[in-house]
């Protein structure tokens, strides 16, 4: 088992290394659209992996990841706004802010099981949005905040910088997922997800277990929100906390394969470009596709694409 963990790690680093060279081969200024799509794919991998840690490995289905993403986004927007920090340097605080929120969320929502947990996360994300909307003196309310796109030291804030940052953030998310997937805690998370009562009867600290999945999950979701905000350059509560940011990671993970490290990657790599294509032809058509896929996969292909591939091989 040790050996396979090293192998996965080397493969991951190799992939990241090769993919990092892309801007050197293809000029980002000549193909900005391509890099926009790649950026979207990376962020989708990041957000879906974050969801997968909590929803797939720990069995706690969250309907509120938009909340963490939104809080992360506002951290990136407000630190430069109030304290004149560089937007890029505030990026890590997106994750930290979301993690602090997660402590609160865990305190409330982890008292609930299954569907009740899911509903409470949905409500908590909405509460976060309403607080941001209402606290006008601090957040500018519905007016929104503009984020100056400043360069990061010598690097210009262009497609290449966004692409590489998002790529490595997605890499960090995958690293977290692989680490969890190969640690002992994977078993505890699974057990708690299946039956909290049975797990604690055996001595597993269910609350700590769930928290240990929620914190990294929230951190990564916050980072996703943060980098998205930087990329867009503008932020308002409506877009930052948009419900689709809660639903999209669920769809990508379910379609790719829930509870597997590669599931969200497969889902994002296939669906995000497909949706970009659809979006350019029929606006909102991509959302319809999302809905249909979610129903079809949950109902008929529970293991997702990876599950199908695996079954074929056996």
């Amino acid at each position: 088992m040790k050996r396979s963990s090293h192998r996965d790690l080397v493969a991951l680093l190799l992939c990241l290394g090769v993919l990092s060279l892309l801007p050197a081969v293809i000029d980002t200024r000549r193909m900005p659209y391509l890099f926009d799509v790649l950026f979207s794919v990376n962020v989708a991998v990041l957000l879906a992996s974050s969801w997968n840690i909590l929803g797939g490995f720990a069995g706690q289905v969250s309907f509120g990841h938009a909340g963490f993403a939104g809080i992360g986004a506002y951290a990136v927007a407000l630190l430069p706004h109030h304290l004149q920090w560089s937007p890029w340097l505030s990026l890590p605080f997106a994750g930290i802010a979301a993690m602090i929120a997660a402590i609160l969320v865990g305190g409330i929502a982890f008292r609930l099981r299954g569907p009740y947990f899911a509903l409470s996360t949905l409500a908590l994300a909405e509460v976060a949005r309403l607080v941001v909307e209402g606290w006008r003196s601090f957040t500018e309310g519905t007016q929104g905040v503009v984020i100056q796109q400043k360069p990061l030291y010598l690097f210009e804030a262009d497609g290449a910088l966004f692409y590489i940052t998002s790529l490595w953030l997605a890499g960090i998310a995958l690293l977290a997922v692989i680490t969890i997937g190969q640690s002992k805690s994977r078993y505890f998370l699974h057990a708690v997800g299946e039956s909290e009562e049975a797990a604690s009867a055996l001595g597993v600290d269910a609350w700590r277990c769930k928290m240990s999945a929620l914190l990294p999950s929230a951190f990564l979701a916050g980072m996703a929100g943060g980098i998205l905000a930087l990329h867009t350059g503008f932020l308002d509560p409506e877009s930052a906390f948009s419900i689709s940011r809660s639903v999209e990671p669920i769809i990508l993970t379910v379609v790719g394969g829930i509870g597997t490290a590669l599931g969200p990657v497969v889902g994002a790599v296939i669906l995000v470009p497909a949706c970009e294509f659809l979006r350019s032809r029929f606006p909102t058509g991509h959302l319809l596709l999302y809905g249909v896929l979610l129903v079809v996969f949950m109902r008929f292909m529970h293991g997702g694409i990876l599950g199908m591939v695996r079954r074929k091989r056996l």
């Binding site: 899911a118 669920i250 769809i251 319809l288 809905g291 129903v295 949950m298």
Partner: peptide, 27 residues
């Protein structure tokens, strides 16, 4: 859907249906 999985699966499936209905109305 098997009963054991139904609670969570139906939650996510009806979420998908919600998306389908709303976006169809939009179109």
């Amino acid at each position: 859907i098997p009963l054991k999985r139904r609670e969570m699966s139906s939650l996510i499936i009806t979420l998908g249906i919600s998306f389908v209905l709303a976006t169809s109305a939009m179109l």
